[in-house]
């Protein structure tokens, strides 16, 4: 498996990262190194091994369904760049 410079740019765009040509080249080299490592690992037979979904072998603890948070809008909005009528204002995004 290999990665093209276009793949790197596409992933950067999806992650909303602005990368220069130089940075794209660097990232390309680094990511390709990771792909190399993955290639090596692929040689190992993992057919009987269940994929790991978390680094720790423990399970999720659950909370009871109870409302425990009270309204702190004023506090939270005191650090927001712009608010109006209780709403957070952000640059317009129209699809």
């Amino acid at each position: 498996m290999s990665l093209s410079i276009d793949d790197v740019k596409k992933v950067a765009r999806l992650a909303r990262l602005a990368v220069t040509e130089q940075e794209a080249q660097t990232a390309h080299a680094q990511l390709s190194g990771i792909f190399g490592l993955i290639g090596e690992m692929r040689a190992v037979d993992t057919a009987a091994i269940e994929p790991m979904s978390h680094a720790q072998d423990v399970v999720q603890r659950l909370r009871e369904d109870r409302v425990t948070e009270h309204d702190q809008r004023e506090l939270f909005q005191s650090v927001a760049p712009q608010v109006e009528n209780g709403l957070y204002l952000v640059p317009q995004v129209i699809e």
């Binding site: 712009q82 209780g86 204002l89 952000v90 317009q92």
Partner: peptide, 13 residues
Amino acid sequence: SLHEDFHGMTGID
């Protein structure tokens, strides 16, 4: 997202 008139901004609830 509320796209009414917030001086060209979007209101978020």
